[in-house]
Design a protein around this nucleic acid. Structure first.
Length: 124
DNA sequence: GCACTGACGCGGG
DNA sequence: TCCCGCGCCAGTG
């Protein structure tokens, strides 16, 4: 799988993040079949490589920090978008943070298999 | 090819 | 829990 296909997969996975939930870069990379490519997920979102209609505000780091907040139009836009979906965002010394135990997108085995088969069918 | 970068993640202390 | 160091990998000049 090349990087182009990886970005196509990432776009599909990101669009599947449920309303009111948050997913980590590594989690998305894993669902795309490349667990070591978490950094590429951040790169793709930052550079708009995943196309339009991507709920980028639902992507945070593994500890729940909104590490991509600076890339939004306003400093607190990502925070407000999450709160508008009912996701509590805590303000800490080290930045905004969400509790992934409570608001994380906890994937089931069926979900992971679904994506794998979907990518297989689409040849990506 | 080389060095450096970064919306990252993990394990150890 | 926090803080580091290290590994990771595509992109960039």
């Amino acid at each position: 799988m090349g990087t182009f296909d990886f970005y196509r997969r990432a776009a599909i996975v990101c669009r599947a993040i449920p309303w009111g939930r948050a997913a980590s870069y590594g989690q998305i990379a894993l669902l795309c079949g490349k667990p070591d490519n978490s950094r590429q997920v951040g790169y793709a979102l930052n550079r708009g490589r995943l196309g339009v209609g991507i709920p980028a505000h639902r992507v945070v780091n593994a500890k729940g920090y909104l590490t991509g907040a600076a890339a939004f139009a306003a400093g607190d836009l990502q925070k407000r978008l999450l709160e508008a979906e009912g996701v509590e965002v805590e303000e800490t010394e080290r930045g905004f943070r969400v509790n992934l135990k409570k608001y994380g997108w906890h994937n089931t085995m069926e979900e992971a298999i679904h994506f794998r088969e979907l990518f297989e069918r689409q040849g990506i």
